[in-house]
Structures are given as structure tokens and as C-alpha cells.
Amino acid sequence: MPAIIQLEDYCRTYRNGSLEVHAVRGVSLAIHAGEFVAVMGASGSGKSTMMNTIGCLDRPTSGRYLLDGVDVGALNRDELADLRNRKLGFVFQGFNLLARTSALENVELPILYCRPAVPVREQVRRALAALELVGLSDRADHYPNQLSGGQQQRVAIARALVNEPRVLLADEPTGNLDSRTSIEVMGVFQALNDRGITVVMVTHELDIASFAKRKVVMRDGLIRTDEPVSHRLHAPEALAKLEAEQKSVHLD
């Protein structure tokens, strides 16, 4: 079976005037449908750069990137936008929800850019279904400033899911969350992965990476290790364990 994400000797060089920054210096990576990959590595090692390319927000300087068999390097801006709209879902560290816009409308956002256009009724139905999936259907009318950080990130995940993408991409999705809500978000990711969605996420935290199935470590723009996660964590158990620990702190 061909990989859904295939990087072949992928390089990305930023050019600031005469200064050249080699952010990624030749990465070959294949991710198959149904995988859950955590990308780790020190700051500045090129994780976000690679995620941006995988997310079709950016194109390789050299090498090839094939998404679902399509060479992304040959596509123009509009074609990239269509790929992002149909095949990819993004979750950001800062949530990036639109302020003063209800959770439901935030989730509807990607549907607005579907071609052909989706009827309004269908839009609402799909947005509600996505909110249901992340367990927030009762908060559809809430504004971002009325939601907790974890809830906001779940709205962002619902938004990423609403067009039923093949791949979910998350750059430090738990970076702004406490450990409990981080585990909740990992629970959502694992549930989605169980339903067949490929997940690629960047994280700095080892225990968060343990919720994935495969761990890729980068250094200086290269992949250093690429191995399966040995002791994989499962969100419900991790949550129970955390609660027990917190309880003991309280009792002492």
C-alpha cells in the first residue's frame, strides 16, 4: 500500500537576504494511512518547518513531497488551498479560533471554502456532528472566551475534522494546556486514530508522545531516530492514574 505522506530527500532552506538557513536538510519519511506519529526534537530542529510542508502550507526547496500520491511541489497556490481544505485538518498550539464567533461557526469555517458550495443546512449538520465527536455539542453557541483552553482546543479539533480529512496535523497541540486537558486532547486523537484518521503531531513532551504509535526524533534538520512507541499510553487509563495521584495530593 502506498504511503499517504511521502517525503523524498526533502530540504527546506530559508533565505533572508544573503543569509541561508537550512531548516530541513534531506528528510525521507513515509507515513501510511492509520498511523499516529509524534515528531519530537530540540527547538529549531525543523519540526514546524516539516509540518508546514506536510500541511501544504509550504513547498519543498528541493526533494519531493507526495500527498496521497500527488506531487505537491508542482501545485499552485489555489490547488494547495484545495488540498488543505479537503485532505488535511490543522490543530495549532494557540487554537486559532476566530474571536466573537460561536463554536459552531468556527467549526463551519472550512466548509465555507468547499467547492462546490455546501448548503447551509448540511453545513450546520456537519459542524454539529464534528462537535459531537469531540464531546462539545452542548457548547455549540459558546464563544471562545466562554470556553476553557481544553474546550477551545477541542473546538479547533472539530474544525480540523469537519471536512473529513485523511490526515490530522497538530503542531504542539498541548503546548498551552495543563496535563489533565492534554490527556483529554490525546484521548480525542486516539479515538480519531481508531476511526482510521492518520495523525501527525509535534510535541516537546515525552509522555504526550507516548500516546502515539510511532515516534520520530529530529535534530538539526535531519531525522535522528524513527521507531515505534514501546510503552504506549491510553488516555482513559492515564486520566484515571492522574486523578488518583491528584487525589492523594489532596488527602495528604
Binding site: 500541511g55 488551498a81 490543522f90 472550512p110 471554502y113
Partner: peptide, 14 residues
């Protein structure tokens, strides 16, 4: 600007 970035990321064309 960030809102525009978000819109572009979810598939808005120029």
C-alpha cells in the same frame, strides 16, 4: 492577520 492565516490554513483561496 492571524485570522487570515487560519482561513488560509483551512482552505480559503486568495
Amino acid at each position: 492577520t492571524r485570522e487570515i492565516g487560519t482561513r488560509l490554513a483551512v482552505g480559503a483561496r486568495a
